[in-house]
Design a protein around this nucleic acid. Structure first.
Length: 441
DNA sequence: CTATAACTCTCAA
DNA sequence: CTAACGTTGAGAGTTATAG
C-alpha cells in the first residue's frame, strides 16, 4: 500500500496517480451563515432545504443535541424550543458565492482540481516532489481557507479518490488529526483498526441499499469490504462496486475530472409552498421551471430534442388521492428557444392534468440534448426564423446576466406566484446584494 | 434477433 | 389554527420496441 509500490490492475484501468486530496468544508451551509452572523457562533444551528422542509446542514452543537441529517423541521420543533436551535432557510446565492472563493483558493495548491460539489474538491497531489510532507501541505490548505474566506475545512489524502474520502472522514472525526489525515503516512495496523471500526456504508458509492445487502453477506465494516474477494463483489454487485473495491485497495481507477462536462439532461422540479389544485397555477410553475431549464441549456450551448413534464401529489398524505403522471413531449426539431419549449411543456401539462388532486410538486426535464453545432439540417429549415430566435434568446440571457435573473422573462410565470416555495428564515444576500449587507451585525 | 430507446434502480451532495 | 417530509444529475442494468 505504500506510495509507488502497487501492482497494476488491468481490469479497471489503473491510473498513474499516487496521492489525491479531498478537501471538504465543515458543515458548509451553517459555516457560510456564521461568516455574516457571529451571533450564531457556539449555538446549535441548522439550515433547511427548500420550503423549509428538512435539515440539510447542522452545526456541531446541533449534531451533539441529536439533530439528524434530513429530519423534517416540523418534527424538531419541540427539541428546537428546548435547546434554542436557530433554523435558517437555504440561501444558495450566498453558498455558491462562498464556494467559488474557497475553490479558487484551493486551486492554487495543485495543477489539477476537480470541483466535486458545492463544498468539496479533489486535488491531485501526485508528483509534488517539493511537498514530501503531504500532511503539512494539507495544513497549509486549511489555514489558507480559514484565514482568507473564514470557512473551516478538513483534508483527506490517499492514493485513490475513494480512500481520500475515507481519509477525510477520519480527519473530521478524530480530533488529534487536526483536520488532516494522510492515510499512507499512517501505520498499517492503525489504518486497519480504523477501517474495522467504520461501517461499510461509509464508503463512497455504498448507499443504504448496498450496505444492507453487504451485511447480509457478512460484510459489515470497511475492512470487511476491502478484503472481500473481487470476483464475489463483481458477480453480486456489478462493475461499479468492483471499481470501488479496487479503489479501497489503493488502485486508483476513478479519474480526476477537472472539466465539468455538458449535462445530458437538465431537470428543474420543485415542491410548492402550498398544495395546488388548479391548472392555471400549475401552468405558471411549469413555465417558470421551463424558462430556468432553457437558460441552463443555452448556457452550455446545447439544444434539447425532448421535454418531459411531471406532476406529483403529496405522498405524505396517504388518505388523499395520489397521482404522479409524467409525459414525454418530443420536439419537432432540437431547440433552445424558451418560447418553443414552454409551448411544448404546456401541451404536455394539458394532457396529464386531472381535476380533483392536490398537487404538491411539478417538474420538467430537458433530454435528447445535443451541441448547438450539431443541429440537424432539414429541407424545411427556416434559417431566418432560426437566427431571429437565437438573437432574441441571447438578448434575454444577456440582460438577465447583467441585471439579475428574472429581469426579463416570458409572460405566464405569474406575478403573484402563490405556489412559490416558503423560505421563512432566509438570511440576507450578504455578498451579492449591497442593500442586504446592512443586516450584518 | 439485434440495436437502440426507454425505463428503473442506486447513489451522492 | 393546522399541517408540516429536497433537488439535480449520473451511470449501470433491465425491459420494451423497432426494424
Amino acid at each position: 500500500m505504500g506510495r509507488g509500490h502497487r501492482v497494476g490492475h488491468p481490469a479497471y484501468g489503473e491510473l498513474a496517480v499516487r496521492a489525491i486530496a479531498l478537501v471538504d468544508c465543515n458543515n458548509f451551509y451553517v459555516s457560510c451563515e456564521r461568516l455574516f452572523q457571529p451571533r450564531l457562533e457556539g449555538r446549535p444551528v441548522v439550515v433547511l432545504s427548500n420550503n423549509d422542509g428538512c435539515v440539510v446542514s447542522r452545526s456541531a452543537e446541533a449534531k451533539q443535541i441529536g439533530v439528524g441529517m434530513g429530519v423534517p423541521w416540523f418534527q424538531l420543533k419541540a427539541l428546537a424550543r428546548q435547546h434554542d436551535i436557530v433554523a435558517l432557510s437555504s440561501n444558495y446565492a450566498l453558498y455558491a458565492d462562498i464556494s467559488a472563493r474557497v475553490m479558487r483558493l484551493l486551486a492554487a495548491f495543485s495543477p489539477r482540481q476537480e470541483v466535486y460539489s458545492i463544498d468539496e474538491c479533489f486535488l491531485e497531489l501526485d508528483g509534488m516532489a517539493a511537498q514530501p510532507d503531504l500532511s503539512g501541505y494539507g495544513q497549509r490548505m486549511r489555514a489558507s481557507v480559514k484565514q482568507c474566506v473564514g470557512i473551516p475545512v478538513c483534508v483527506g489524502i490517499a492514493p485513490s479518490k475513494t480512500l481520500a474520502k475515507l481519509a477525510n472522514h477520519i480527519a473530521k472525526k478524530e480530533a488529534d488529526c487536526n483536520g488532516v489525515c494522510d492515510l499512507d503516512a499512517m501505520p498499517r495496523a492503525a489504518q486497519q483498526a480504523r477501517f474495522a471500526a467504520l461501517g461499510a456504508g461509509e464508503v463512497w458509492g455504498v448507499g443504504a441499499r448496498i450496505a444492507a445487502r453487504l451485511q447480509g453477506m457478512g460484510i459489515d465494516s470497511v475492512l470487511d469490504l476491502q478484503t472481500a474477494p473481487a470476483t464475489v463483489i463483481r458477480a453480486a454487485f456489478g462493475v461499479v462496486l468492483a471499481r470501488t473495491l479496487a479503489e479501497l485497495n489503493g488502485v486508483a481507477c476513478i479519474g480526476l475530472e477537472p472539466e465539468p462536462h455538458e449535462r445530458q439532461q437538465i431537470v428543474c422540479s420543485r415542491s410548492f409552498g402550498t398544495t395546488v389544485g388548479d391548472l392555471a397555477q400549475l401552468e405558471q410553475a411549469v413555465i417558470a421551471y421551463t424558462v430556468r431549464a432553457a437558460e441552463k441549456l443555452r448556457r452550455q450551448q446545447s439544444l434539447a430534442g425532448v421535454l418531459l413534464v411531471s406532476l406529483c401529489t403529496n405522498p405524505h398524505r396517504p388518505g388523499a388521492p395520489q397521482y404522479q403522471p409524467q409525459i414525454r413531449v418530443p420536439l419537432e426539431s432540437p431547440c433552445a428557444d424558451s418560447r418553443v419549449l414552454c409551448r411544448a411543456a404546456l401541451s404536455g401539462l394539458q394532457v396529464i392534468f386531472r381535476h380533483g388532486f392536490g398537487y404538491r410538486k411539478a417538474g420538467i426535464t430537458l433530454a435528447g440534448i445535443i451541441p448547438r453545432a450539431a443541429r440537424p439540417r432539414t429541407l424545411f429549415d427556416d434559417a431566418a426564423a432560426q437566427a431571429k430566435s437565437e438573437r432574441l434568446m441571447q438578448a434575454v440571457d444577456a440582460i438577465n446576466r447583467r441585471m439579475g435573473s428574472g429581469t426579463v422573462s416570458l409572460l405566464g410565470e405569474g406575478i403573484h406566484q402563490r405556489w412559490a416555495m416558503q423560505r421563512g428564515y432566509l438570511s440576507g444576500g450578504f455578498t451579492t446584494r449591497w442593500d442586504e449587507l446592512a443586516e450584518v451585525r
